[in-house]
């Protein structure tokens, strides 16, 4: 852990939560923005890519800040993140597969 507050027993340190609330407001703002986009933009590839982009930003804040992965040792960070590259491969392969099922039907 990054901060182990040294203290005498029975004495409790003051809460230090500013960065937590900062992350919360960023996520709330992104979700609100997604709502606005959902209603003002016509559907299409651009709208989908904006949604996917904003989702990845939100995912970054949850994993990096709330789950604290940003502050872990690099080896731990990469052992979690690198295997997820397979998901991208799987996603691209299966979406292409879905498209070709559609075209042969």
């Amino acid at each position: 852990m990054e901060h182990t507050v040294s203290h005498t027993p029975g004495e409790i340190a003051k809460p230090n939560t500013a960065h937590i609330w900062r992350t919360f407001w960023i996520m709330a703002a992104i979700t609100a923005l997604e709502f606005v986009i959902a209603f003002v933009m016509a559907s299409g590839p651009l709208k989908v890519s904006i949604f996917v982009g904003l989702t990845i930003v939100k995912a970054f804040y949850i994993v990096a800040e709330f789950m604290h992965l940003k502050y872990e040792v690099k080896a731990l960070m990469f052992s979690i993140l690198l295997p997820l590259l397979f998901v991208i491969w799987f996603l691209v392969a299966m979406i292409a597969e879905g498209g070709s099922i559609y075209s042969v039907r």
Binding site: V87, L91, I95, G98, G99, Y102
Partner: peptide
């Protein structure tokens, strides 16, 4: 991803 595949396979 399964949802994506099946959705792309439908009209």
């Amino acid at each position: 991803i399964t949802y994506g595949l099946i959705r792309f396979a439908h009209k």
